[in-house]
Every structure is written in C-alpha cells, then in structure tokens.
C-alpha cells in the first residue's frame, strides 16, 4: 500500500526541532489556459489558503502563466513511495497488449 507522504516535501522524519514554526507549505497547481489541466508549478509558504492563493498568483503567474490556480496543503498529499517502485507499478509491466502497437494489421487496412 502507499504510505502518506507529502509529494515533494521531505519525509516527516526530517528535523522538526524547536525553531519557530514557519507557515505551512502549500503545493501550487496552475492551469495555463482553458482546455489544459492544472499542472504542478511549485510550492510556497502561507498562513492560510486565501494567502496561499494570493502568494501563488504573485509567485507563479507574474507573466500571465495562468488562468486558474489550485493550492493544496503539502501535508495533505498522499504519494506512492519510491521504495516500492518495482512492486507497485509491476502489474502494468507485462501487459503490452494494452497498447495499439501490440497488434499486427495487414498493409492496406485503413482507419484502424
């Protein structure tokens, strides 16, 4: 099974000593124009979601790079672990018949 870890942030075993806590980290996703999906642009710190959106606008869309922004608390992202890379993604590895190129079609057959 996957274990919950922030996507880009370090695993929670990282040093969390008695320093004054910085604002939470947010992952920023930007839709560059209508018709395209939101894409991960980077991360930033902000005290709350509204400020995260404003900071994201200032940080990631200074040159009109976006028409829509999502911000997600980094701690809320669940990611697959790189350690289980092989077993986790293995099921797809031996199924080339899921690709159209697997099939041989005689010359002269069109629209297939």
């Amino acid at each position: 099974m996957t274990t919950p870890h922030p996507a880009e942030a370090p695993a929670p075993t990282a040093d969390t000593s008695a320093r004054p806590a910085d604002w939470p980290l947010w992952e920023v996703f930007v839709r560059s124009r209508r018709g395209l999906s939101h894409t991960h642009a980077g991360s930033l710190h902000a005290p709350d979601a509204a400020m995260a959106l404003r900071n994201a606008r200032d940080l990631y869309t200074r040159r009109s790079e976006g028409v829509s922004i999502w911000v997600v608390p980094s701690a809320e992202v669940t990611a697959s672990s790189p350690d289980e890379k092989d077993s986790f993604f293995e099921p797809a590895g031996d199924k080339p018949y899921r690709h159209p190129t697997f099939y041989e079609i005689p010359d002269g057959v069109h629209h297939l």
Partner: peptide, 23 residues
C-alpha cells in the same frame, strides 16, 4: 520583484531536501 520570486523558488527547492526556509 523577480529576484524575490527567484529566491522563493530556490528556498522551495532546498526545502524538498529537508531544510526549511526559516532555518
């Protein structure tokens, strides 16, 4: 303003290695 932005992109990159911006 860009320079400030560049600083923030880079602090974020450092943060992915386990070292926070405040530190």
């Amino acid at each position: 303003q860009d320079e400030a932005g560049h600083g923030l992109y880079l602090y974020s990159a450092a943060e992915t290695l386990g070292t926070g911006r405040d530190e």
